[in-house]
């Protein structure tokens, strides 16, 4: 796990901590999150019991707009979109169907979309947001942390925003205010919540 700037597992049972170090690295590698996560600190105390994972992510690519993956030819009564990256085709189609109706979105071949719309409707099309990488990352990250955490720890609180994330879980109810605990763990990484 040399790719991470900070990686620590803290546990009152040293051997258990060692095993969890291996579990964390395996799961992050399997979920392809090593390049995304910059720092991670995991704290597990089975006697409480509590599992806390705090960390930061690297700078993510910005929002993906139509312009980023396709060429647009905007005419007076028609727009032709030629898609270069098929990965965004499905979300784009969904947005266009919702906005203009399925009848007005013609797809003569897999990577071409033609819409008979007026110029005033099509002006904003190039800057329309199709995908937010942060949203997908949030889901992937939380799923990975769920996999890392001991299975019985079903009560959980999680957060991801501004390049920071935390995941707190227990099999008992969690304290109402977990901020002091989280602040302490972020401080160990040289970060603040």
């Amino acid at each position: 796990m040399g790719a991470l700037d900070y990686f620590e597992v803290e546990c009152p049972e040293p051997l258990g901590g060692e095993y969890y170090q291996r579990i964390v690295s395996t799961v992050l590698l399997d979920h392809d999150l090593v390049r995304v996560v910059a720092k991670i600190h995991v704290f597990i105390d089975p006697s409480v019991p509590i599992f806390v994972a705090t960390g930061t992510t690297r700078k993510l690519p910005g929002l993906v707009t139509v312009r980023d993956f396709s060429d647009l030819n905007i005419e007076d009564h028609k727009v032709t979109i030629s898609i270069a990256n098929e990965a965004y085709l499905a979300p784009l189609l969904k947005i266009l169907w919702d906005k203009f109706g399925q009848a007005r979105v013609d797809q003569p071949d897999r990577l071409t979309i033609i819409m008979p719309i007026e110029r005033n409707e099509s002006e904003n099309l190039p800057d329309m947001v199709v995908s937010d990488p942060g949203e997908a990352l949030y889901k992937d990250l939380i799923y990975a942390l769920q996999t890392i955490a001991p299975e019985g720890f079903k009560v959980r609180r999680q957060y991801y925003g501004n390049g920071k994330f935390y995941y707190v879980a227990s099999e008992n109810t969690l304290d109402e205010d977990i901020t002091p605990l989280l602040s302490e763990k972020f401080r160990l990484m040289g970060e603040s919540l």
Binding site: L15, P46, P150
Partner: peptide, 14 residues
């Protein structure tokens, strides 16, 4: 069965 093999976790406490 003839024998039960319990696959337990990593922590003594648990």
């Amino acid at each position: 069965h003839d024998l039960a093999l319990f696959m337990l976790g990593n922590f003594e406490t648990c």
